[in-house]
Nucleic acid binder design. Structure first.
Length: 642
RNA sequence: GGGCGCGUAGCUCAGUCGGAUAGAGCAUCAGCCUUCUAAGCUGAGGGUCGCAGGUUCGAUUCCUGCCGCGCCUACCA
């Protein structure tokens, strides 16, 4: 609701400035810090002061005097050195909310592709991967809430070095065949992704101790690429099983995908070969004939030496395949995958995976208008190479619409390492944080963290609801765990390194997901209590006249609280514009704070005055809806009770 | 060396396009449960916005330099 007014005010000012001063200005509308200054502030007089060579205060007065009536606005006031403060008509505003006036969604019909998660399928997911997936998933939810059409892709690098290493581990360290590993996967007592986690650390250490054994890796990569033999089969078995683990882990947090594009198909369907020809043809890469990079195909420009795309042994680096993939995402490759169903989600939606077998699936993916790649900021250079590749091929517009949705890494605080029993060098102990490393097996596994959160939440839930069945309490505890974890990962801005701290992640008080959930639970509990007392929910539209609304909203307290609740769309729009899910998280917390205040201060169902009681109930219901909607955008479920 | 990012309360972090008295959570201290769930609420203390210049009506915000920290700078991803 608030967002509509914001836009309306901005439009009115823009039109007036154009007509009166002939100035085409992008009008900024901000929210004053102090509520006494009104609901909106327009600092446009400051911008004009320079051009018109007049005092801001004088210009502001002139504008406020001449602009005329703006729908929904009660008054304009000049304050400070030249602010124009806007006071809304509370009755009109309240009545519009009662009618359920919604802001028109901004989204266009163009398809937006968001790629996230992208975990190497060779070990269990850790907190770093969770940040990626939760950020990506939340951004997707934001876009969809904003009316955009989104396709979610989770790229599976099932033929890369990391998978090869684990397969080498199974082969040379464990002496296991594909059949042995299949049996291991089928064993319900074995957490296969955990087994691989340890094995990956072991083989990495083994390479370090026995550098000559590194040729195993090369051999394995070739075997996988050829696609035949026991080794290739083992690689597929391992990667598929780990993907299954990752999908299960993500599903625990409510994260789903539309399609899994796999690297094996990029190879087998010759996407890369095709892109390679394109790159050569359009002179985006050149063959180096001398020096250090002799025999490589190199993309010049981004760094001093250029970026190797094809190694001297003829194999392509990941970034090369990524260029082919990015071209496909925009529908520029002229080739396409085939698709087969991978699994079905609870709501019946099918997750598709690519295949190289020509089958008619009736599915179409890719051909996006805009592409977001959710990838951590350490890979900025590689992402720049991909975009430079598009540019070099002449796809300027698509390059401009390629966004590296970057974020900082999750590291471990030294204290956290100590708690987890991770030994640290003297040097590491002095650092502010220690990088997670899959190779070293250094990190917090996603499922372990979720399990700890559930256990802790269950303790809490059970102590408050001892009379309820354990199974039911466990379900609630799971929802609380999800809320805690998602909020924890979302409350930081993207470019903040999260120094992971177990105590903080496990916190349920203060600025946390459970606080937001608890508030929503309280709101719906009030409404439920009303019915338990045998009272019906009032017909708000009939009982609350615009006059009654204006009367109640004359209370500064009520007005401020309602105003806060009405800003959900505005907060979402700002967060989308900034590409910053943390803004939504922060708003959810502020919203919860506002309701908690209201809840503590005003008895709702015990209110004697009928008009006021109906109004309070309406406020509660409105809050509940706004809170649930915002939580939903964050992927935070609202439990029945807590 | 080069590129990117960070430095704000004891700790962890926010801080709209340069704007009005720099905020939140945690921690500390003092209060609030016979009334809709205390995972809550109220209040208090706590700041040289890394340092030094510059730009201007105005700088935590923009520019330059310096100091400190991190990441990237692979024929790994």
């Amino acid at each position: 609701m608030f967002h509509s007014i914001e836009k309306q005010v901005a439009r009115a000012f823009h039109a007036h400035l154009l007509a009166r001063y002939g100035v085409d200005l992008a009008v900024a509308v901000e929210q004053p810090r102090q509520s006494e200054f009104g609901e909106l502030a327009v600092p446009v007089a400051f911008q004009l002061a320079r051009q018109l060579r007049q005092a801001p205060k004088k210009i502001a007065a002139e504008i406020a005097d001449e602009i005329g009536a703006i729908p929904g606005v009660a008054a304009l006031e000049v304050a400070g050195n030249g602010y124009i403060n806007v006071r809304l008509d509370r009755g009109v505003y309240g009545a519009a909310m009662l009618r359920g006036d919604a802001d028109e969604p901004e989204g266009s019909g163009e398809k937006i592709i968001v790629e996230h998660t992208n975990i190497n399928p060779n070990k269990a997911a850790h907190i770093g991967h969770l940040r990626n997936a939760v950020l990506g998933d939340t951004f997707v939810r934001m876009l969809r809430a904003g009316g955009y059409r989104v396709e979610v892709q989770n790229y599976i690098d099932n033929t890369g070095v990391q998978v090869a290493d684990v397969v080498v581990g199974f082969y040379h360290l464990e002496h296991k065949t594909a059949a042995d590993v299949k049996a291991l996967i089928a064993d319900p007592a074995v957490r296969f992704d955990y087994v691989c986690w340890d094995l990956y650390a072991r083989i990495s250490q083994y390479y370090k101790d026995h550098p000559e054994s590194l040729n195993w890796r090369g051999e394995m990569l070739h075997a996988i690429e050829s696609g035949a033999g026991d080794a290739a089969e083992l690689a597929h078995v391992v990667a598929d099983a780990i993907v299954q683990c990752h999908l299960a882990t993500m599903l625990r947090l409510g994260i789903e995908y539309d399609v899994l594009p796999r690297e094996s198909e990029i190879l087998h369907l010759r996407f890369w070969a095709y892109a390679f020809e394109l790159l050569k043809e359009r002179k985006a890469i050149y063959f180096e004939t001398e020096g250090k990079l002799k025999g490589c195909w190199v993309m010049p420009g981004l760094s001093e030496e250029g970026k190797v795309i094809v190694r001297s042994d003829g194999t392509v680096v990941y970034t090369g395949k990524d260029i082919a993939y990015q071209l496909w995402k925009f529908g520029l490759l002229g080739k396409d995958f085939y698709y087969r169903p991978w699994m079905t989600y609870a709501d019946g939606r099918v997750l598709w995976a690519t295949t190289d077998e020509p089958v008619e699936s009736g599915q179409e993916f890719g051909r996006g208008w805009k592409v977001y790649n959710v990838i951590d900021t350490r890979q900025s250079y590689l992402q720049d190479v991909v975009v430079a590749g598009l540019r070099a091929l002449g796809y300027q517009e698509q390059a401009d619409r390629s966004t590296h949705f970057n974020y900082e890494m999750v590291a471990l605080s030294p204290r956290c390492c100590a708690e987890l029993g991770i030994p640290l060098s003297e040097e590491d102990r002095k650092r502010p944080y220690v990088e997670v490393s899959g190779r070293k097996g250094l990190g917090v596994k996603a499922d372990d963290l979720i399990d700890s959160l559930i256990a802790k939440a269950l303790e809490e839930v059970a102590s408050r609801n001892a009379d309820l069945p354990e199974e039911q309490n466990r379900r609630i505890a799971t929802q609380i765990a999800i809320g805690a974890l998602r909020y924890f990962l979302l409350k930081f801005t993207r470019n903040t390194v999260i120094a992971f701290d177990l105590q903080e992640a496990l916190a349920f008080v203060g600025e946390t997901g459970p606080y937001v959930q608890y508030t929503a639970v309280r709101a719906s509990k009030v409404l439920r209590k009303l019915e338990e007392r045998g009272e019906a929910m009032p017909d708000f539209a009939r009982e609350l006249s615009p006059e009654a609304m204006a009367r109640q909203l004359a209370s500064e307290d009520f007005w401020q609280i309602l105003l806060a609740a009405s800003k959900a769309d505005s907060a979402l729009a700002a967060a989308l514009a900034a590409g910053e899910p943390s803004h939504v998280a922060r708003y959810a917390f502020q919203l919860a704070q506002a309701f908690s205040n209201f809840y503590e201060k005003y008895p709702i169902i015990h209110e004697e005055n009928r008009e006021k009681k109906v109004f309070l109930l309406w406020m509660t219901d409105y809050f509940r809806r706004q809170l649930e909607r915002t939580a939903g955008i964050l992927g935070i479920p609202v439990p029945e009770y807590m």
